[in-house]
Design a protein around this nucleic acid. Structure first.
Lengths: 209, 209
DNA sequence: TTCGAAAGTCAACAAGCGTTGATATCGTGG
DNA sequence: CCACGATATCAACGCTTGTTGACTTTCGAA
């Protein structure tokens, strides 16, 4: 079950501000970014402080500003991530819903989702984070589903519906930890969410479409 | 931190000022609560300031503290609301999903949802808001569905799944305004979300439940 | 009319925030 | 060796926040 090419834990696509900084500071920059991901994912945008990120990374707060410009820019760097979706074109059509649910929720279940968690946690109060969710839909979810259903004229509407089910599940289970969703058996959850997504992808759309 | 008068004070009340305040201040208290609802719903917990609420209500910031104790207590008063769900016992079983979707999303669509919006907007960063979502599930969603499906042993799991679909839709359409969900035709949305909820309520549950 | 409590005003505190600039230290090329 | 730019440290700035206490005004009851 491959989820991404670079299984390398922390990919070093450190969004580099030009070349004003030599390679000697790479460890510090990486430590800052890692600490920022954890803090933003856990506390959201407002409650995350530059000072706390710096302390977690073991650097001076001024270094954070030096390398990332501002708190807003640091957040942008935090949520900027590749996170490709599995190729669904070779999956049998009846299985796509389940596979999509697994691809989306698996990252959360395994805890390899700091950027997504930061974006989702911060989205309701930080507009830039909401735009990041929109971008993730435009650049990953929608294209992947379009490739799987190339001749469906309503695929955009369907993809939006898929996202409501997927993000709703992630929010309740992993961010808000609402019971019984948070403690629900994972396979049962995948089964139900996958079937719901499958329905959004294939069932007839009602009303004026 | 604490705002209690320690020795004599029996207990500090959470939401409604007991009768320590005369009826002459009722308009001000109501204006404060209304302004707080709007601000919390729009900006979330952290970005909402006592000063802004006071300005919107046309009162002095100190009045907000006087009548509601603290910012956290003001938020509690904001999200404490009845919002009963329609009685679903007389609805045909095949229609319950659609009716539930309408009951849940209709309030949002009509904008009569300030307390829910405040709770959902603030939930990812303010734990008390997340607990308010949990309470709403425990006290309204789950009982309503239990009455509609009294003999289903998995109704709690099913109700949780229903909530993932319902809250996911509300979040994307009304809070984050993610396209194409935000601009989707309302009846089309109800049809799809209602059918998904219906599926969660009636389809067999997979795996070990 | 008088008086006391309720209602409202005002200024300030202490703490925390993002951010900045001056300064010290390191590491390497000449 | 020295020098110079990159790297790191430090202290502070200006601002906003929740919250508080002293003060004045309002108003109905005695």
């Amino acid at each position: 079950m491959q989820h991404s090419e670079n299984a390398q834990g922390v990919e070093d696509v450190v969004w580099a501000p030009p070349r004003r900084f030599g390679p000697r500071s790479a460890p510090a920059r990486r430590a800052i970014l890692e600490a920022a991901r954890a803090r933003f994912a856990e506390d959201g945008y407002e409650k995350t402080t530059i000072r706390a990120v710096a302390a977690d990374a073991g650097v001076d707060p001024a270094m954070v500003m030096r390398y990332y410009g501002s708190k807003a820019d640091l957040f942008d760097a935090t949520v900027r991530v590749a996170s490709d979706l599995e190729d669904l074109t070779k999956v049998p059509r009846e299985e796509i819903g389940r596979r999509f649910a697994r691809a989306m929720l698996g990252r959360w279940e395994r805890g390899e989702n700091k950027p997504e968690a930061a974006a989702l946690r911060a989205a309701p109060t930080h507009p830039e984070a909401a735009r990041s969710v929109q971008r993730s839909f435009n650049e990953h979810v929608l294209p992947a589903l379009r490739r799987a259903f190339p001749d469906d004229p309503d695929i955009e509407t369907r993809a939006g519906l898929v996202l409501t089910q997927g993000i709703g599940t992630a929010l309740l289970r992993y961010v808000l930890e609402i019971e019984p969703v948070a403690s629900m058996d994972y396979e049962t959850l995948i089964e139900a969410v996958g079937a719901s997504i499958q329905r959004h992808l294939t069932a007839p759309l009602g009303s004026a479409a």
